[in-house]
Design a protein around this nucleic acid. Structure first.
Length: 272
DNA sequence: TAGGCGTGGGC
DNA sequence: TGCCCAAGCCT
């Protein structure tokens, strides 16, 4: 849930999930669509699908217990190098090289003297992080947590709080006079994109209690007569995008291909 | 490996 | 107001 999503927005959903599904087996015992529905508006709903798939793999391949080694974690759906290292370190106390966006930024500034880390994680960054990691398990876990928190709370992306930084006197970026970034991060387009349409479609499916006929997506709201109960608001939001039929087609086809939607009785629904 | 993939708070 | 960014992953 925390992948690319701020903690404050994750917390309430996380609590709900653990109340409803206390174990991997409990989650795996329900349809994947329920995971997507309960994902709410956290974004990137494929993560819900993968979390459900991971729960199934943990149940079938690991006797219902989250594995405690990096390679086993890495093999789970939706678990990449960061998450595998983070779970092994923070849940199981193992010595792993944890590198997330916060740690990358701290290393870039403090050690490399750059305003920002490279656009994509490099092998050199991994080597640097590994070289800085304390040798014993306990210290390495605290180190990972400390550097991550420093990046999240003090050495922030915008307006870093250098005055409050406990290691500002060691910072290569400050020593160099805080040079600007060597590149301009390219923002993600949003308005008018397929992603925006996908998001609006999933918002409809999430609230729908019965399969949604294609007409609901493609025809003008005025021509629809009525919408299935509960989806009036997200459906209106979708139509307000005024996207071309081909774009809507692409979005729906993409959702089917990704397993975020399925056809049932001539309509679209979350996977049941 | 570069690009696709959501959402909302803060500035 | 828009734009930036957030505990990345997958193909």
């Amino acid at each position: 849930m925390l992948q690319q999503t701020p903690v404050v927005r994750v917390l309430p959903v996380w609590h709900e999930w653990l109340k409803r599904w206390p174990t991997p087996a409990a989650l795996a015992g329900e349809p994947a669509g329920e995971a997507v529905r309960s994902w709410g508006r956290l974004g990137y709903p494929r993560r819900a699908l993968r979390l459900h798939a991971a729960a199934a793999a943990i149940t079938s391949d690991h006797n219902g217990r989250v594995p405690d080694t990096y390679p086993e974690l890495l093999a789970l759906p939706g678990v990449g190098s960061y998450t595998a290292a983070a779970v092994a370190a923070f849940a199981y106390g193992r010595r792993e090289t944890v590198v997330d966006t916060n740690i990358r930024r701290v290393h870039a500034r403090l050690v490399s003297g750059s305003a920002l880390p490279a656009p994509a994680l490099t092998a050199a960054e991994m080597r640097l992080a590994a070289s800085l990691l304390p040798a014993d398990d306990g210290s390495s876990v605290r180190w990972n947590a400390a550097v991550m928190e420093l990046g999240a709370l003090v050495c922030t992306a915008r307006a870093p709080k250098c005055a409050a930084c406990p290691v500002s006197d060691l910072c290569a970026w400050r020593a160099a006079g805080e040079p600007p970034p060597s590149y301009v991060p390219k923002g993600q387009a949003w308005h008018g994109t397929d992603r925006q349409v996908r998001g609006a479609v999933v918002a409809v499916l999430r609230l729908a209690e019965t399969p949604v006929p294609p007409d609901m997506f493609f025809r003008e709201p005025a021509d629809l007569g009525f919408a299935p109960a509960g989806i009036g608001v997200p459906l209106a939001a979708l139509h307000r995008l005024n996207s071309a039929p081909e774009q809507l087609e692409r979005a729906l086809a993409g959702l089917l291909a990704d397993g975020l939607a399925e056809m049932h009785g001539g309509g679209y629904r979350l996977p049941a």
